[in-house]
Design a protein around this nucleic acid. Structure first.
Length: 581
RNA sequence: GAGCCGGUAGCUCAGUAGGUAGAGCAACGGCCUUUUAAGCCGUGGGUCGCGGGUUCGAGUCCCGCCCGGCUCACCA
């Protein structure tokens, strides 16, 4: 197939046409144009439509029926009704919604009552473009040639629009050129006038067109899209071309990060950048990637967290800072873990963890309203409710409630805890340190409580080497984690700013490390020196952006929210490039 | 790292007992000036993930490997 396209490429060049020209003037993106002529129907807008079924096709959960009234005006109907046949007359009642831009009747059921005029329904929400001149470009994703006319759709990130070429307007030569030389998959630019077809679809009546880039590969199938998960991740560009849902998820991700920046700006935070290559990988419990700098002749680590640098900036007098960026952890890969992942970390001088909780609630409300427009989010089987205040539960209160044992037991009776862990079927308990045991037991017993947005507060000190000792209990620190749908979405504390205490905590970590905990934290002498100059009381927090997007996008795989997730290098077997020699 | 499942045409998928590898879409050649999963007539297209074995004969059975998905372990 590629050979045929390469031949076409050759033919174009022989005709003196550059298949890869330099620029094209567009008047707007496709989606923006459509928005100008298409209004969203209100919620729960009920309609009855009646007409001849022109086509009945099966969808994932039911059928899609195209019906047309006496004047040929068409509307799509999504229904679960069985045994519908083409050419039969039906009347459906259902809700008017836009599905991929087209007005459609969804959740439709058959009815005996008379239908309304389809054109009248559509005219309320689809406006007449009055042959407005326009210039658009995009990838040709479908084509229907009809002898002396051609229909097709071009697509960009923002949407899809129909193009219509007819002999009377573009002329016989141009029409033939389109037929012979333009393929589905090519990127083209068109100039013409906007109108609506008999069936009511917004369409460009093309006067002139240009090939903007020749495609040498056929596109994935138009109806089923690209399903092969491996190809979707390795060739994400194809996934983005073929699957509108995937485009939607990444637009959502972009929007979320954009709004997050706005929110920080609104609250006096400034965005900073700290090193990704670090001589000491500290600030979190994780195994780092190691690399080597030839000129400096030194080993460096890809950061596991920006925390210690951001706090140096607080020492340096920046009162509110945030950084959105990648962290790297050399650990397992699964549906919730990618070796590089995106976090936002932020620090505010003079705040404590209560301020952070309030700020977090406000931020989530803002982000949800800006992205999804609701505080009630469907995630799998769950309905998550982000209406503040979020539930707040003390770490040891949950343990007490679930196990009947109190704080002293968990902090002092290590062997008793080990026994409890065994009873809970936690694997490999014999090798675990005290901190690890506690962490695992908590995870196991608290699981059920962590579906709705919940702050777990007041963590044990031995799990939190960078958090400030609790003002009322020396065994605890002022720390919270925000859980949503069982994912740890945020982790925050009143920052430890006592340099002597901080040194002792690092030393504890070094002991853990010697006892075999590979993920225990590294000592950072310069960080302690910074604290010795004086860091104001500070609240600091990290939010996992990938996980947050997973929740908003209702997906259970992190690879669905990362454009290019990490996979093993492909060896052979997948389709090779056709221009390779 | 362990267990289970998968890899067949460009894409989505069938492939029955081991007997010359199939469909739809896409492609190619025709017809068709408001089509829209367009339609109609015709044609071509395969390293069955890779390598070995059993067999007269392997997409199919056996062994090893590669890649992916899910579950578990580690981690956020």
């Amino acid at each position: 197939m590629e050979e045929i396209r390469l031949k076409k490429l050759q033919e174009l060049r022989e005709k003196g046409i550059n298949p890869y020209p330099y620029r094209f003037e567009i008047s707007d993106f496709i989606g923006n144009i459509r928005k100008q002529y298409e209004e969203e129907p209100p919620e729960n807008y009920k309609v009855k439509v009646s007409g001849i079924a022109k086509r009945v096709s099966r969808t994932e959960n039911g059928f899609m029926v195209r019906i047309a009234d006496e004047n040929g005006v068409e509307i799509l109907v999504f229904t679960r009704e069985e045994n519908l046949k083409p050419k039969e007359r039906y009347t459906f009642e259902g809700l008017l919604k836009r599905v991929e831009g087209k007005l459609s009747v969804v959740d439709a059921v058959l009815t005996d009552e008379p239908g309304e005029d389809i054109k009248k329904i559509k005219d309320q929400f689809d406006y007449d473009p009055n042959f407005r001149p326009i210039s658009l470009a995009g990838r040709l994703v479908s084509m229907r040639t009809m002898g002396k006319a051609i229909f097709g759709h071009i697509q960009d990130l923002t949407g899809k629009i129909q193009i219509y070429l007819k002999k009377d307007i573009v002329g016989e030569d141009k029409l033939k050129f389109f037929n012979d030389n333009i393929d589905v998959g090519d990127i083209i630019g068109v100039r013409g006038k906007l109108f609506r077809t008999n069936t009511g679809e917004l369409t460009i009546e093309v006067e002139e067109f240009e090939l903007l880039s020749k495609s040498l590969h056929p596109l994935p199938e138009k109806w089923h899209g690209l399903k092969d998960v491996e190809v979707r991740y390795r060739q994400r560009y194809l996934d983005l071309i073929a699957n509108p849902e995937v485009r939607r998820i990444f637009m959502l991700r972009t929007k979320l990060i954009m709004e997050m920046r706005k929110f920080f700006e609104m609250h006096g935070f400034i965005e900073v950048e700290t090193p990704i290559l670090q001589p000491i990988a500290s600030g979190a419990n994780a195994k780092p990637f190691v690399t080597y700098h030839n000129f400096l002749e030194t080993e460096l680590y890809l950061r596991i967290a920006p925390e210690l640098y951001l706090k140096r900036l607080i020492v340096g007098g920046f009162p509110r800072v945030y950084e959105i960026g990648k962290n790297f952890r050399n650990e397992g890969v699964d549906r919730t873990h990618n070796p590089e992942f995106t976090m936002v970390e932020f620090y505010a001088a003079y705040w404590d963890y209560f301020d952070l909780m309030k700020f977090t609630e406000d931020m989530f409300v803002y982000l949800l309203e800006k992205t999804l427009g609701t505080l009630k989010v469907k995630y799998g089987e769950w309905k998550l409710d982000f209406t503040p205040p979020f539930r707040k539960v003390k770490y040891f209160d949950i343990l007490k409630e679930k196990t009947g044992k109190d704080k002293d037991f968990f902090l002092k009776d290590v062997e008793g805890l080990r026994k409890l862990a065994k009873e809970l079927d936690i694997p490999d308990v014999d090798k675990m340190t005290h901190a690890k045991l506690l962490d695992k037991v908590f995870e196991r017993v608290a699981e059920e409580e962590l579906i709705q947005p919940t702050f777990i507060i007041d963590f044990p000190k031995l799990l939190s080497p960078l958090a400030k000792t609790h003002r009322e209990d020396p065994d605890l620190v002022e720390r919270f984690e925000l859980f949503v749908a069982r994912y740890e979405v945020a982790n925050a504390y009143t920052e430890l700013n006592d340099p002597i205490d901080q040194r002792e905590r690092f030393e504890e970590q070094l002991k853990e490390k010697q006892m075999g905990d590979e993920e225990a934290m590294e000592m950072d002498e310069d960080f302690i020196r910074a604290l010795e100059y004086g860091m104001p009381p500070t609240g600091g927090e990290g939010i996992g952006i990938d996980r947050l997007v997973m929740i908003l996008a209702n997906t259970d795989s992190i690879r669905e929210v990362i454009l290019f997730p990490q996979l093993k290098p492909e060896k052979k077997g997948l389709n090779r490039s056709s221009t390779a020699r």
